[in-house]
Design a protein around this nucleic acid. Structure first.
Lengths: 237, 237
DNA sequence: CCCAATTTGTTCGTATGTATA
DNA sequence: TTATACATACGAACAAATTGG
C-alpha cells in the first residue's frame, strides 16, 4: 500500500497528518507498515510513536510494526479490570447465556449515537473466576456493524470477543468509556451471580470505541464485588 | 543544577538513564530543565517526552518545561473520577469533617507498605457537588512523611490536598491505584451522605504513589452513586 | 550453523518556525 | 526587539533482534 502525505492539511503538524493517514490505512485493512511515505523517517516515527503509546500499534524489534491484536493478554491488561481482592489476576471463563436479535433502548442508542429502536444484537455472558460466577455481561451491538454474526460463530470463537470483532468484522476496539455505580442486585442478576436479591453489586456501563471515537459496542457489566475489585491504575506509565 | 549522565548504567538505554536522573532531580527539588546534560538534545527530549506523557512534567512553548503542579485542573482531569450521570463535570466543594492523630490499621499499613500501628494522620472530608453531599473521604497519611501538618494548615490550604502535599511537604503524587467495590452504606456513611443505611454505595480504595512507586496516602472514598458515576476513560490518548 | 537482509531501537546531529517573557 | 525555549521536520549512523536461505 502506498500513500503520499500532503505537507499540510488544515494547520495540523505533518506527523499528525501522517498519523491520521496511518489510522485510515489501518481502518481500511491490516497492512505492514514498511512503506515509507513522502516524509522523513523521523517524522514517521513520531506518528507511529503516538499510535504505539495508544496501544493501537505494536512494534517488535527485528520483525516490524503491526496493528495490535486483541489477544487474551491485551484484553486482560487493557480492557478487563476485575481482579481478586488479594491482587491476583486471571483470565475469566466466559459462558454464553443468550444471543438474540433485539432493538436498541434509549440508553444504548444514546451511547452508540444511534436512534432508539434500531436493530441490534443482544448477547448475555456469564464470566467466572476460580470456577465461581462473578460477572454478568449484557452486550448490545448494532446489527449494521456486525452483519453475519451468529450464535454459532460467537460460541466457537477461539479467543476474546474483541478478537472476534477484529478478525471477522474488521472492527478494532481502541478505547472505551466506563461509568461505574453501585446498585442493588435485581432478581435476574441475583440468579445469575448467585447472590441475594438486593445485595450490593457493581454496575459498569462500557461504551467501546473504534477509530475516530466511533462507538461499536455498549455493555452493562454487573459484578459481584464481594471477593473481587474493579481496578483502575491511574496514570500508569 | 548540573548533572552528568554516564553513557550506560545496567544495560538501560541512555534516554531512560536520563529519565531516572531527571526524576531524581525533580524529587530533590523543583528545577527548571534548561541545563543540557552530557547527552544529545534529541535523547534528552525522548526522556522528557516520556515524563510529559506520564503527566509528571508539562511543557509550555516559549516558557519552559516544569514539574506539573497539582492545580484544580489537573486534579479534575487526572485524579477525580466522579461525574454527574448526565456527563457534566464540576470541581467538588470539600469540607473537613475531622483531623486526628491515629495509628495505621492492617489494611492501610499493607497499602502504604508500613507496619500496622505506625503513627498516622486521619482526615475525614465530605465532598459536595451541586450543593449536595456525594462523597465521603477517609484519608490516612504516614505521620513521618507529613511532619508539621496541622488541621489549621489543612483547612486553610488554598488549593487541592495534593497541591498541599506538593508545596508544603515536597511530595508529588504521580500515580494511584484505585480498587472499587459496591457495598451497603454503614450508619456513619449513611449519615454523612444522607442516604438510607444499607443503601448501595461505591467504595473506592486509593493508594496514591509518588516517584519510584512509593505510597504516600491511602484513602477510602464512599460515593453515593444515585446521581453520579465513577468514570474511567480506558486508553485515552 | 552461519550469513545476509530487513526492521526496529537508540543515539547523534542540523535547521527552521512559533510562542513567551 | 531580542533572547529563550519548545515544536516540528529532516537526516545519518550503528546496535539489536528476527527471518530466511
Amino acid at each position: 500500500m502506498f500513500l503520499t502525505i500532503s505537507p499540510d492539511a488544515g494547520g495540523a503538524p505533518l506527523y499528525r497528518v501522517a498519523k491520521r493517514a496511518l489510522l485510515q490505512a489501518i481502518e481500511a485493512g491490516q497492512c505492514p507498515l514498511a512503506s515509507a511515505f513522502g516524509i522523513s523517517i523521523g517524522t514517521l516515527r513520531h506518528a507511529v510513536d503516538e499510535l504505539v503509546a495508544e496501544h493501537i500499534l505494536v512494534r517488535r524489534q527485528g520483525r516490524g510494526t503491526f496493528v495490535a491484536t486483541h489477544n487474551a493478554d491485551r484484553f486482560l491488561f487493557q480492557f478487563f479490570h476485575v481482579e481478586r481482592s488479594d491482587g491476583r489476576r486471571e483470565p475469566p471463563v466466559v459462558e454464553v447465556l443468550g444471543f438474540e436479535r433485539t432493538r436498541l433502548d434509549e440508553e444504548a442508542a444514546a451511547a452508540l449515537r444511534l436512534r432508539s429502536g434500531e436493530a441490534a444484537i443482544e448477547i448475555n455472558n456469564r464470566l467466572s473466576l476460580q470456577g465461581r460466577p462473578i460477572v454478568h455481561d449484557r452486550l448490545l451491538l448494532p446489527s449494521a456493524l456486525f452483519k453475519g454474526l451468529t450464535e454459532k460463530r460467537l460460541r466457537e470463537r477461539p479467543s476474546t470477543i474483541y478478537h472476534l470483532y477484529q478478525t471477522e468484522f474488521a472492527i478494532t476496539v481502541v478505547r472505551a468509556e466506563e461509568r461505574l455505580r453501585a446498585c442493588a442486585a435485581d432478581r435476574a442478576a441475583a440468579r445469575i451471580l448467585g447472590v441475594a436479591p438486593g445485595a450490593p453489586v457493581l454496575q459498569v456501563r462500557r461504551t467501546a470505541l473504534t477509530f475516530n471515537d466511533k462507538p461499536v459496542e455498549f455493555r452493562v457489566s454487573t459484578l459481584n464485588s464481594a471477593q473481587h475489585d474493579y481496578v483502575n491504575l491511574v496514570s500508569r506509565p
